[in-house]
Nucleic acid binder design. Structure first.
Length: 416
DNA sequence: TGTCCACTGGAAGGGAGGGCTT
DNA sequence: AAGCCCTCCCTTCCAGTGGACA
């Protein structure tokens, strides 16, 4: 084989076994530690389906990374195992963050019942009522039980209201032989307040709450996955404990814990280490946090990027604390330089609040007496990294090397 | 004690854009 | 294709305000 730049990487002993997806959230292991109770509970509800009856609708609550999706998918696999190829139970999983419109959900479900050679429901174009009717008609061809899982159901409700849920939850009245039950998964306990009371009671026939994992439980989970994902003996025992402890601090998020472990492993491997050590966990923590910030900045609208860029320039020229007026005049200057329309100060106030909520800046309202009331603004992300990300943007690039003319007014009323 | 700065942040409404309906 | 409705961004207008200063 020809020697390529990749050779050194391919040759070196890797820390991972073949399949490193085992540490990704999408992987569903053979058994789920510390979720026996929830599995039993949900299984007892779903068992009805195996007898050909309609299981109760279920609402599942729990914070991110508490195993909700994993348990539901796990039971999906179990059902498939016990029914074999007989398709008298349909298990349909929909993530409402991806499919988030009434039309999308109905079309998605409908198409599962339409054979490949038949006419599919198009992405768009049909009246929603027609999609619903087609779905009903196809579904009702056989006396089967359909379990529809709506993951992140709260996102759906916030975005498109509860019309779909209304239709889906009363679909059984319109079906002659088929039966439908719905499992809604949410990490927001309060989202049901936004539902019509009738829908609320129909959906919540059964309720389940997934508690967060504690550090010990997280350790067990990580241990199980680490054994599958890493070669023997390459992970220092304390690494698992630290990943678990860090994630336990953040409301017991198993997803976070696994991510830490995976990134730590990847960083160690990239450095051609023989072991994953504690240092790499902390490096992983930093990398994840930084990546997260970078992603937020990258997806900011142009106007907010300009605003942020202006604040960075100000800070680079030595002004620690800015007020709204300073930020606005720098922003205006930048806009004019590259010929972008200038938004009003009122609008900028709102954009600043957004940046504050995203944790990119820290802003608080202060009064300087005689000299008015304003926000005192500080960046709360590392300048160098933020700047690097901003300069990826085509529009910001044009400002490369720009020096600000209007320096923030030095605040002489400020006390130490 | 009152004044007045430099804003804040609410309210209302315009207009573009997207999706549904006719 | 046209009309309708909804949402998102944004503007305009403006009353309200904490506290340094005269």
């Amino acid at each position: 084989m020809e020697e390529t730049v990749f050779q050194t990487y391919l040759k070196s002993d890797t820390l991972f076994k073949k399949n490193r997806d085992i540490l990704r959230p999408s992987y569903i292991p053979e058994n789920l530690p510390h979720r026996d109770y929830q599995i039993d509970q949900l299984a007892s509800i779903l068992a009805t389906a195996l007898r050909g009856d309609r299981p109760s609708n279920v609402l599942i609550f729990g914070k991110t990374g508490t195993g909700k999706t994993a348990v539901v998918k796990f039971l999906g696999n179990e059902i498939k195992k016990s029914t074999g190829d007989m398709e008298n139970i349909q298990y349909i999983y929909i993530n409402c963050e991806v499919v988030d419109t009434q039309y999308g959900i109905l079309a998605n479900i409908g198409n599962r019942f339409i054979k490949d050679w038949e006419e599919h429901i198009p992405f768009t174009g049909w009246p929603t009522e027609k999609v619903y009717n087609r779905l009903k008609e196809k579904m009702d061809l056989e006396p089967r039980v359909t379990v529809i899982i709506l993951d992140e159901i709260d996102k759906l409700v916030y975005k498109s209201g509860d019309d779909v849920l209304y239709h889906l939850s009363k679909i059984n009245d319109d079906l002659k032989q088929a039966k439908v039950s719905i499992i809604g998964i949410s990490n927001d306990l309060k989202f049901t307040e936004f539902l019509d009371p009738r829908i609320k009671s129909r959906l919540g026939e059964e309720k389940m709450v997934f508690p967060p994992y504690n550090a010990q439980q997280l350790r067990d989970i990580l241990m199980q996955r680490a054994e599958l994902a890493f070669r023997e003996g390459v992970v220092e025992p304390s690494v698992i404990a630290i990943c678990a402890a860090l994630a336990a601090q953040e409301h017991g998020d198993a997803r976070r814990a696994l991510e830490l472990l995976r990134v730590a492993g990847e960083l160690a491997e990239r450095n051609k280490e023989k072991m994953v050590t504690e240092t790499y966990v902390y490096k992983a923590k930093n990398k994840i946090e930084l990546d997260c910030v970078a992603e937020v900045i990258r997806t900011l609208p142009t106007q907010s990027k300009l605003l942020l860029f202006g604040m960075i320039l100000n800070q680079e020229s030595g002004t620690e604390k800015l007020n709204t007026g300073d930020v606005y005049s720098t922003y205006k200057e930048l806009c004019k330089k590259i010929d972008v329309s200038v938004l009003t100060q009122r609008r900028i106030t709102d954009l600043l609040s957004e940046l504050d909520m995203l944790g990119i800046i820290h802003a608080r309202v202060i009064s300087k007496g005689r000299y008015g009331r304003t926000r005192e603004i500080q960046l709360s992300v590392p300048i160098v990294e933020a700047r690097k990300v901003l300069e990826e943007d085509e529009i910001i690039k044009e400002l490369y090397g720009h020096k600000i003319k209007i320096q923030a007014t030095l605040d002489f009323t400020q006390r130490t």
